[in-house]
Nucleic acid binder design. Structure first.
Lengths: 179, 179
DNA sequence: GGACTCCATGTGATTTTGTAACATTCGACG
DNA sequence: CGTCGAATGTTACAAAATCACATGGAGTCC
């Protein structure tokens, strides 16, 4: 449920905006994400079981990617099983349902920032603070799409990830360079 | 185990074309790739040592991504060291020098198809036959670039990978569906 | 109600992928 | 020759992911 109860001036407005580097009402991030997921699971006949729900909640707590073993640690701390498949199964469910994404270049997972939106996610990953922002991409429209059409390749899924520096860490880097 | 149809009329023309799904003079792929690498190493003061050269040759032998341990097996078969760092170091060198790329979503490596070209590679990966074609992307110009500029994110490197079906495997899938 | 089935969960063991750390070798250079 | 740095080789280990199998709970069918 998008309830922009934003405490800040410009909290991410509509779902196509990248979030993660900007101020926003983080508490509602989590609540909204869980509510969305519940609604969508009911609608699609999926079972948002306790582990799965907890895993999503854990992911929603940060705009960073979490490794499967970090997730496992936290699930264990919440009283769930302590073997790798516990984490991987929950994450697989979330990814399959579109509630989370895998960041391939980090071998890590992050909650989806635009649940419900038709998905061709693209990620901006800060190499310093590890924050991750999700944007919408349209790779099929750019040069990749052109190459695919030219060669007859049928795209089914795309991975688009950009590594670099978020605004805050750019400032930090400047400070260090100056000092 | 080379592709049945090589030494055909159309050797890949210019470097901006995706190759890998098309017929081309594969023998010259390898020879050219090695020659290019040698020249570029001389120019840049890099050392294309025997292991590194062999690793590149192995990669050039296929338009598929090779796992580090597959690489290790082949290097061992050629008389080089047999421990993981041997393969990883050679691959790191090739990637750092722009002679190869890592396919993040496969945890595997492939020879660069456009050596020398300024690089923002994009890959098309067939999920059936595992062939990989490399194209040039310009993600900074599309919606990702727009999102980055909007949020102040400084892109340093991009990962663009498309999974799907290559032309040949689309035909294969049709055959099976029909039968 | 009882048996059956499907799916989710828990667990042990293993495979696959990737690094850390350290000894050795070899060419460049004074 | 001595030494310095880069490259290689090897041992050991860490991190990421999967396999295989047992358990348990919610429906369903009779």
């Amino acid at each position: 449920m998008t309830s922009p109860e934003m405490t800040q001036e410009s909290a991410a407005a509509h779902p196509a905006e990248p979030i993660g580097f900007e101020r926003h009402d983080h508490a509602s991030c989590i609540a909204d994400g869980l509510a969305e997921a519940e609604a969508r699971c009911v609608a699609k006949g999926l079972r948002l079981t306790p582990v799965r729900r907890k895993a999503l909640e854990i992911l929603l707590q940060e705009h960073r990617a979490l490794g499967a073993y970090d997730m496992l640690d936290r699930l264990r701390a919440s009283g769930f099983g302590s073997q790798p498949p516990v984490a991987y199964r929950a994450l697989d469910f979330l990814v399959a349902g579109g509630f989370a994404h895998k960041i391939e270049c980090l071998n890590a997972f992050i909650a989806c920032a635009h649940p419900g939106a038709q998905h061709t996610p693209a990620f901006m990953i800060c190499r310093t603070c590890e924050a991750v922002a999700e944007a919408q991409a349209a790779p099929a429209r750019g040069s990749l799409g052109k190459a695919a059409r030219a060669s007859g390749f049928a795209i089914e899924r795309t991975v688009v990830e950009a590594e670099g520096l978020c605004p805050a860490c750019q400032d930090g880097a400047q400070d260090e360079a100056g000092a």
